[in-house]
């Protein structure tokens, strides 16, 4: 009896804490969302009020729709994010597999060298990167961003994935070798499905910073046809006047695609934790 009640208390306390945290985390998003549906005057007079019949307005979304090509910006952001994630996961997993599976001279050093990238921010190299992009003629193309983000994401991806690759049963890979599978088949068919939760984790870790990044688009892809969503939204933020309606509307819309991507990956994350290969 006592035990049951204390469990109830525990559960309540736990859920209380979680709910509190959720409210804190979601509050800014909530404020952005409600204010994106209000008139400019209402945003400033009562920022926390819900939009009512008097203050409700589509003006922000209308401005966004009229000014600039936001659908194109969306598309650009999407291409860059998905493209970068694809390359990060592909090359990260391959490098991690090589590091964890094969014994070769300098294995450990190479692993440390790759991990070094986690500690050194890629932005330090911005000038050099810009020079390289100019030299290769990649400035103002989405490839410039994809390449930079892939480089930015690889160190952590290799680090996390090689830990998980170590855990994949050695016997399973050997069984594949004895059955005549190629190293590529072993990697893609046996190992990758088993580290799917780790892949999802890496994807989620990398997705948000890439989607939200302003720095590299500003420097590498400033021209209109390759602008990303974050850069596109900047037109509404002026030195003297900021069109808050439009900014908030643009940000609200920017949440959606990344939310969808997140849901896809987190599903994978949960589904990935099922296997019966080894005891």
């Amino acid at each position: 009896m006592y035990k049951a009640r204390s469990n109830l208390l525990n559960t309540a306390a736990m859920h209380g804490a979680l709910i509190l945290y959720m409210i804190i985390a979601l509050f800014p998003v909530f404020v952005i969302l409600i204010n994106s549906f209000k008139t400019r005057r209402a945003i400033f007079s009562e920022p926390l009020a819900l939009p009512n019949a008097e203050t409700f307005s589509w003006i922000g979304y209308e401005t966004v729709a009229q000014q600039g090509d936001f659908f194109l910006y969306f598309q650009n952001s999407m291409i860059v994010t998905v493209g970068s994630l694809f390359f990060i996961l592909l090359f990260g997993a391959m490098a991690a597999y090589a590091l964890s599976e094969y014994r070769f001279r300098g294995n450990l050093l190479l692993g440390l060298y790759m991990a070094l990238g986690i500690m050194i921010p890629i932005r330090i190299g911005t000038v050099a990167i810009l020079e390289m992009m100019v030299a290769t003629g990649l400035v103002n193309s989405l490839w410039a961003l994809i390449l930079v983000y892939t480089a930015q994401g690889l160190p952590l991806a290799v680090f996390i994935l090689s830990e998980f690759m170590h855990q994949v049963s050695k016997d399973l890979k050997d069984a594949g070798r004895i059955d005549g599978l190629s190293e590529y088949t072993i990697f893609f068919r046996l190992v990758l499905p088993l580290v799917r939760p780790a892949l999802a984790t890496v994807a989620v870790f990398n997705m948000i910073p890439i989607w939200n990044d302003l720095w590299f688009p500003l420097i590498l892809t400033p021209s209109e046809e390759v602008k990303t969503l974050t850069l596109g939204s900047q037109v509404f933020i002026g030195q003297y006047v900021t069109n808050w309606n439009a900014v908030l509307a643009a940000l609200s819309m920017a949440i959606l695609p990344v939310l969808i991507l997140y849901i896809i990956f987190s599903r994978q994350l949960i589904r990935g934790i099922t296997s019966g290969a080894v005891k």
């Binding site: 016997d171 399973l172 069984a175 594949g176 005549g180 599978l181 046996l190 290969a277 080894v278």
Partner: peptide, 30 residues
Amino acid sequence: TPPSKRGIAMVFQSYALYPHLNVRGNMTLA
């Protein structure tokens, strides 16, 4: 000679069955 061409078959301590294949698939893969 690579393992698959040596005319051997191996049974592992941890079974090492392919998780994405059913019993028939496991047995016929080689």
